[in-house]
Write a protein that binds this DNA or RNA. Structure first.
Lengths: 181, 181
DNA sequence: GAATAATATATCAGAAAGATATATATTGAT
DNA sequence: ATCAATATATATCTTTCTGATATATTATTC
């Protein structure tokens, strides 16, 4: 059984409607990029394997002279596997921060380099928060009740990013205090 | 040049004092586990390659009949590479959440399964926050000024986890409201 | 005395990210 | 009108990272 967790992201998208690997990539980037990835290097092999295993079916859609779209449709077996995963209450989270790694070892080189990075982090957080607010506004205008789950994931992003922003502002004060002392 | 970012975590630890791969693993787990990993499958090969490249030197320390400790010492070239990385202001962050992935596709199966997971997330956040408070208390008693950088990374963990806790409490209300309506 | 945890090394398989390759169509800029 | 960039669509390769497994010895707990 190939694909790890990304397998379920694919089944999830295909449970909404039939689509190509390219579509999955685009939708994942637009909707899940804050907390999930998915490169072509994963997507295409997993789709192949799932077709062989009977979790999805394929049919080609020729359209002009673009490369033919391979549209994948989820089967009953595929839906069953998705539901099984959704029914399992366990989940794995992972967070990886090169910023914190650099900060941790900055004792050796003094606060100035750390200050530079934290300022950069602060600016990036501000920008991301702006983006989240934009998406949130669009969402509140659509009033589609099926979007609650999307809103919940967005709300997590917003809250976490707000926490990071507040941290960077506090960290900046502390680091600048180190320079004065 | 092998090792990606983890390479610098190793150089960072070795810049503090000479140690074995086993020591690096232990210290990484104790101090960086919230935002950085490092398995033996990475650590040992990277140490070998860095020794060949002259960034570290090795000497064996035989001690009773345990497997001999291979103690690695950072060289000038190694310190230079570490400093170069620390001087570069760029950094990459990544966050991966199977919880949010499951939540996102929960529209298909209804709120009860989502509620179960969010409750689990809430409980885990509470527990983690307790842990962070414990470490923070230990730290405030030590009054070692070199520990500012460690405190800063801990503070980020605390703030982010607090945000996650608040999100889960808010999300729970929304999802339970969906059941009543 | 037996089971488990800790010390210490090392490798392998599976999963994920990022880069690259191939081919065509459309859009925007000069 | 042409040239460059972006979008559509497939696919593979290399590097990185995680988690599991293997090996061997000592210390600790039941």
């Amino acid at each position: 059984m190939k694909g790890g967790k990304t397998r379920y992201a694919l089944l999830g998208w295909l449970s909404v409607k039939p689509m190509s690997g390219y579509d999955v990539k685009r939708l994942t980037e637009e909707n899940l990029s804050f907390f999930w990835g998915g490169s072509f290097g994963q997507i295409y092999p997993i789709l192949h394997e799932m077709a062989e295993a009977g979790l999805v079916t394929v049919h080609e859609e020729k359209q002009g002279s673009y490369p033919a779209r391979k549209v994948y449709t989820i089967t009953e077996a595929g839906r069953a596997e998705l539901t099984e995963w959704l029914s399992d209450p366990s989940f794995e989270e992972s967070f990886r921060s090169e910023l914190l790694l650099k900060l941790f070892f900055s004792a050796e080189v003094g606060p100035d380099l750390a200050i530079e990075k934290v300022k950069k982090a602060r600016d990036e957080s501000k920008q991301l928060l702006q983006q989240y607010r934009g998406i949130e506004e669009q969402l509140s205008n659509s009033s589609d009740p099926g979007q609650v789950y999307f809103w919940l994931t967005l709300d997590m992003g917003r809250r976490v990013e707000q926490a990071v922003l507040e941290w960077s502002q506090s960290a900046l004060q502390i680091l600048e205090g180190l320079n004065d002392a």
